[in-house]
């Protein structure tokens, strides 16, 4: 079984996790065009190589961020979301 290192729970079987998709910035609600919204909702980078994604540890309901290589199936780094989303917008 592949092991994913959860920032909260340590190394766990990857079957305990769910992938939540690419980390993307939400467009500004008032300013975005319909096309930008549709792309935000449906579009994916779907890159081969290093990607940054949301992951969820199901038993503890904990969301965090993982960087992994979609070409080699290696997990590069995992860390709490606060590293990226440290501050709330005013």
């Amino acid at each position: 079984m592949k092991i994913l290192h959860c920032p909260l729970n340590g190394p766990r079987n990857i079957s305990e996790f769910v992938c939540g998709g690419e980390v993307v910035e939400m467009p500004e609600a008032g300013a975005a065009t319909d096309g930008e919204w549709a792309d935000y909702v449906f579009g994916h980078e779907n890159a081969r190589g290093a990607v940054r994604e949301w992951w969820f540890h199901v038993p503890t309901a904990y969301w965090f961020i993982a960087e992994r290589d979609t070409g080699t199936d290696e997990i590069l780094r995992t860390y709490p979301a606060s590293e990226v989303f440290g501050r709330r917008p005013p």
């Binding site: 579009g43 994916h44 980078e45 779907n46 890159a47 081969r48």
Partner: peptide, 16 residues
């Protein structure tokens, strides 16, 4: 598909 589309300059609603 997404890799070729990226070469052509557009994005797809696809995950591989």
């Amino acid at each position: 598909s997404s890799l070729l589309a990226a070469m052509a300059g557009f994005r797809l609603p696809i995950q591989t």
